[in-house]
Write a protein that binds this DNA or RNA. Structure first.
Lengths: 131, 131
DNA sequence: TTGGTCCTACGAAGCACTTAGTATTAAATA
DNA sequence: TATTTAATACTAAGTGCTTCGTAGGACCAA
């Protein structure tokens, strides 16, 4: 009964795993487990379960190599980032992404250099549109 | 056994409720219920339970007026927005808020006017720092 | 006073998430 | 070949979230 638990967003642990897969490109249960944060003691079978569920939810695909499954992200990090931001914008920023940037920019903890980078980015984007 | 289920972030429904409270400033169970989205048929007791839990988690405070509790946000929307963005940045954007803005800015769906506004904001922020 | 209305408090069901154990199978090695 | 190793599949426990029902109390009107 291999149903397709569909779901839009990654859970906490799924994001943790997906982050590793995005970084590695692909990986086995063992690979992901080995790359988790040092203090994270997770049983091998737990990791296997999580990846199997992620496949049911179609967050990853798998391919058997020998006796082992190799898992690959089914969606790019970029795309997931966009999706998440869009969702957050709708839920917490009245659907106006600009207010989100405003909040970021006005908060302390953003270095001047980071701010400069963003301005450069904006300049580039705005001049592109002019052309 | 009135324990303090502490927790950092609002759940889905809690955010829904908090959004109303932020908009209204404060409100009773009835108030919140009446301001939910039209299609949202939620039992009165459900809403009451949710607000009671939110108080246990210290997301809201309450004050009895007559026989009815009036609930007020215990933290400002601004502050929660910042917290959420910071968390998201750490979990999905390698802890670099600039990359978050980059993703937002590069995605379609952001009007040129919005982009201009943000640049203006940045300019203001950067010249402030110079002074 | 009695019945209806509106509130709070509590409890419980259903579901998803997280974690890990057991059983089974397949490969590798001695 | 027999044993050990390592993988997958399944099951289940614990917890938190969401929802609602029931019970009980206060107030108001007939």
């Amino acid at each position: 009964m291999r149903q397709k638990r569909k779901s839009e967003f990654l859970t906490e642990v799924e994001l943790e795993f997906m982050t590793e897969l995005w970084a590695m490109g692909q990986g086995t249960v063992r690979d992901v487990l080995d790359h988790l944060a040092p203090g994270r003691n997770l049983a091998y079978t737990s990791a296997a379960t999580i990846l199997r569920i992620m496949e049911q939810k179609e967050f990853v695909t798998s391919e058997k190599q020998g006796k082992t499954f190799v898992y690959k992200p089914a969606l790019a990090k970029d795309a997931y980032q966009s999706k998440t931001l869009h969702d957050l914008s709708n839920k917490l920023f009245d659907g106006t992404p600009a207010s989100m940037v405003a909040r970021l920019v006005n908060d302390k903890g953003m270095s001047e250099q980071a701010l400069e980078e963003i301005r450069a980015l904006l300049d580039r984007r705005l001049t592109e549109n002019d052309s």
